[in-house]
Amino acid sequence: MTQRLTAWQAYLLAAVFGAGGAFGQQPYDLPPLMLLGMIGAVWLFQGRVTARQAGVTGWAFGLGYFMHALQWIVSPFMVDVARHGWMAPFALVFMAAGMALFWGVAFWGARRLSRAGPWALIPCWTAAELLRAYIFTGFPWASPAQSGVGVLAGQALAWIGPHGLNAILIAVAVWAASALTGPPRALRWRILRETVVLATLLALLLPVMRGDAPLSGHTVRLVQPNAPQKEKWDPEKIPVFFQRQLAFTAAPPQQTAPDLVLWSETAIPWSLEWAGTALEEIARAGGDAPVALGVQRSDGLRYFNAMITLDQSGAVTQTYDKHHLVPFGEYMPLGDMLARFGIYGLAANQGHGYSAGPGRGCWISGRWVMRCR
């Protein structure tokens, strides 16, 4: 049936399947639609006879998917609409098109490896997602595996990780698309073959579905002010959000007192060098529990997206500078050169944005350990 579609019809349908598959991600949280979208992409792949056609189909599917799944990236541009608003549509389209290239290459490679069936998509698509998570500092957001967080299949994440779960999802999509197509005379053999494959996949899943993971006995209180992005830096709203976080931090425990209070990234609007009084208030609200929070700090002309821990007096006991920065948002590639043309990142300073920290760290305080990436 897919052979009856023109090239442009197939590409448009692939984009529709991709946009529909994005309903499997937050805030919709409908993982069956994620799987249906992937099945549709594999079904279209089977009708693309050349590697070029397969590659464009994969890219179109990824474009529709990432345009929908990454729509949240326009929010920071809305903080200062007059300055950054015009960049929002370009950022979304270019980001989605760039992420879709990984899937386009996967589909192209799968067709080059196999002219007959879609099974080469399993290693190629999985490898593309693995590469997307690490190359150019990595951008693993909206990975298909993330759609399984709220369902039973998501338990596999603790054992085989997101890329293992991606491989299983892709394999199931390939199985389903293959089971729906093929010559009628081969139906009996096809059903037997696909049943064996599905049974094997389920057998791989069974060991990871062992119920809840054992708890550590520690209690962590997570605090965030529920501040709309466009209001976070509003001078009139800053005291409201700060007092809200203090109240949450000092609230009586429902069961056991927290061992650690954790505030979010850039939890306060003041740079660390000017936040002395605020840090003392935060420490008092935390009581006996240490408080870890995200702040911005400077060292000369260099700025860092940092995380600190406070003792009961408000003194900084540990500092971690984020080293895995998001391109364009936290730093601008070729920042000095682009700054000459008036192009800056959202967190730009001297054209570059934030500076990267020295690397991963591990904090130890009392009974808890925090690993920072």
Rank of each mutant, 00 (worst) to 15 (best):
F45N: 03
L272W: 10
T319A: 05
M67A: 11
F45T: 00
A306I: 06
W108G: 10
P239C: 13
A267N: 07
R112M: 07
P123A: 03
W119Y: 13
E194W: 06
M99G: 09
F304S: 03
W233I: 09
L113D: 07
H352K: 10
W8T: 09
A96H: 05
D234M: 04
V316F: 06
W125M: 13
L260A: 08
D288F: 11
P228N: 10
L246G: 04
V208S: 14
I343E: 06
V326T: 15
F77R: 01
M38G: 06
V208A: 14
W125G: 05
K322W: 00
L169G: 10
W159I: 02
D29A: 05
F248W: 10
A267R: 03
V42W: 02
A128M: 12
H84A: 14
A179R: 06
I191N: 01
T195K: 04
F77P: 00
V326H: 13
G286K: 07
A128C: 09
A120T: 06
G154H: 06
Y344M: 09
P89R: 05
I308P: 09
V291Q: 09
R284N: 05
C372H: 13
M38D: 03
A250R: 11
Q245D: 15
P207M: 04
A173D: 07
I268C: 10
R190C: 07
R340K: 13
S178D: 15
T137P: 02
L192F: 09
G40H: 00
E231Y: 09
Q155E: 11
P31M: 04
L165P: 10
D288Q: 15
V261E: 05
W274Q: 14
L5R: 05
L334C: 03
F66D: 02
Q350P: 01
G361N: 09
W233F: 14
N166T: 15
L180V: 09
L121W: 00
A10G: 12
L334K: 03
T249D: 11
A251N: 09
P32S: 05
L113Y: 10
G329L: 10
A145N: 04
Q296W: 00
Q71P: 04
L92K: 08
G359Q: 12
W141S: 10
L152I: 09
A153F: 12
L310Q: 02
F241A: 03
A227P: 04
L260C: 07
V151H: 01
I168V: 15
L13A: 13
L70R: 08
D288H: 14
R4Y: 01
V223L: 07
L204N: 00
E281C: 01
P207S: 03
H68L: 15
H68S: 15
G64H: 07
R48Y: 01
H323T: 08
A356Q: 08
I364T: 11
M332W: 05
R48A: 11
C372T: 14
P118M: 01
F304C: 02
F107P: 04
G276H: 09
G18K: 01
R193I: 01
Q229G: 05
R284L: 12
V208C: 10
R4S: 12
A356E: 08
A153D: 11
Q296A: 06
W43L: 13
L165I: 13
G37K: 03
A19Q: 02
S264A: 11
G276S: 12
A14C: 08
W86A: 15
